[in-house]
Design a protein around this nucleic acid. Sequence first.
DNA 1: CAGCATCCGTCTAGATACTG
DNA 2: CAGTATCTAGACGGATGCTG
Lengths: 133, 133
Amino acid sequence: MSATHTGVPAADPLDQDCPIREVLDRVGDKWSTLIVVRLGQRTHRFNELHREINGISQRMLTLTLRNLERDGLVSRTVYPTVPARVDYELTDLGRTLVPAIMALHEWAVAHRDDIRHARVRHDEAATSGATRG
Amino acid sequence: MSATHTGVPAADPLDQDCPIREVLDRVGDKWSTLIVVRLGQRTHRFNELHREINGISQRMLTLTLRNLERDGLVSRTVYPTVPARVDYELTDLGRTLVPAIMALHEWAVAHRDDIRHARVRHDEAATSGATRG
DNA sequence: CAGCATCCGTCTAGATACTG
DNA sequence: CAGTATCTAGACGGATGCTG
């Protein structure tokens, strides 16, 4: 975190202070998208997310949720019951992000094989180049 | 990297083995998008990128370029001149990714203020909550 | 000019233990 | 159930020096 915020943010994607950085810090995050997409379907409780995303630790789930909340993408509702119950859901702002994530997802699905093939090709080239000398 | 590849990759965005992960690893990368967007405009030489992205180190530029090349998003052309000259440009595959990145960028521009306000609000709430006890 | 190797500090993210 | 606190391994990223 600790925003760079040089004071005058440019809207130019070529500028490294570009706002896309703030978004990418969230989207590129290992867990954020997984949470956002899930929350895009319905409200989840803490442990529901914990179970569904399975690979995530409590700590990471909490931290990621806090960041998403801080950015206004996710809202947190605490029910003062015993034991406590907390619901997480996408805010209106968060919901507007889903399509962009989905666009990326669709690109990934459409070109997944291209990437895999490219990697294999690259890997083979590097290997043969190394072993053949 | 080191693909999990359970054998049967799901196209479901809710699956953590989802192909979007592979894309996000690249898109979420600190420097990748900066390079892709620049290369989306025209071919660049190594030092052109180095100068334009300025904050990046040679090491990171090289590593990021290698990853992009490995994924088939960027092509590298070496001219056996002296001194050596290397051109980097987007492949057809790489070019198809630009729109998705731009969509994210547009979202970022459109909601930049929302995010900033949310952060300020969150920060203020946390501060007053902490100091007020 | 382009790039690799090495060293090293920082930050991330997971495991673990404890609390209301 | 829903977190918080602490410790730590390891990845990430920068600086520097060398090569063709």
